[in-house]
Amino acid sequence: MAQIEVEQLVKTYAVSERRPGLWGAVQGLVRRRQRRVKALDGVSFEIGRGELVAYIGPNGAGKSTTVKVLSGILVPDGGRCVVEGRVPWEERIAHVAQIGVVFGQRTQLWWDLPVVDSFELLRDIYRVEPPRWRRNLDELVALLDLEPLLDVPVRQLSLGQRMRCDLAAALLHGPSLLFLDEPTIGLDAVSKLAVRAFIQRLNRERQVTVILTTHDMDDIEALCDRVMVIARGQILCDGSLEALRTRFGHQRRLTLELADPHAPLVPEPGTALLGREGARVSLAFDPAEVTAAELIGRLGARYAVRDLWVEELPIEEVVARLYDEEAAA
């Protein structure tokens, strides 16, 4: 049985609206309009133990809502959700004792207390046996290099330091399932790499299942074997990173550096213009339709080309097109 089973999950929010301006405010006193927004519109998936899954989608697509349902904070309006045999919102306390959650945008540490005080507090709240807690803490301190941070009040930590501490805080009770909501948001390059390396180790060595929501495609490329894309409350795509790429054929990107930055461009059959910045022009093409050699030959005949290179379509591009396609539908 899968660790997480989600079937036809539906969640609708009621959003109060009022018309703009003073008159709108007056009207709002008498009559409030409520708009219903479908945050989840029949979401289904299964996640097995030890998977590392990226859960991505544009802002407002339903990512956080899904995570909140899975972690027992939100009660859905319909559908089924079972995590390790538990229905999260029905057995909230038993459920949250077995999961870890990190929200990149807010800390779960006690702002005014030294880091180690927060860790001790979590030990008591989660009722972790002191020897086990000690073992987990020592391990996490070593892996995340927290030793110099333990006595520092949380409010004095940098964002990168705080995120490392937050990761440790979410794992002190040894959860088998970890939700990471934008764990690398706002981090510098070094901190990002440290966080990614840690997540990878955790998943490989401790078999912790990780569900990662992010807007950072480098996170996904570095970490995840499986990507689920959600938009407007529906899963658009669920599969490997490779599968996501091939959704638009095995597209390649050809970038040309022209001798003349103002050379007029002629539409090239079998390609799509991705963008132009002065002399640099990028085209997407499908090698099944037109081979790279043929395309380069044609372009070379038409323009004075100083340099060119061919690469796989970056994952950002794939996802952006997927969102566009969905928005257009």
């Binding site: 027992g72 904070i73 038993a94 929200f103 779960q108 709240i125 009722r127």
Partner: peptide
């Protein structure tokens, strides 16, 4: 809205 995160703790 931070208050909701109290629901993530295994206590009442």
């Amino acid at each position: 809205g931070k208050v909701v995160y109290g629901l993530l703790r295994p206590v009442d």
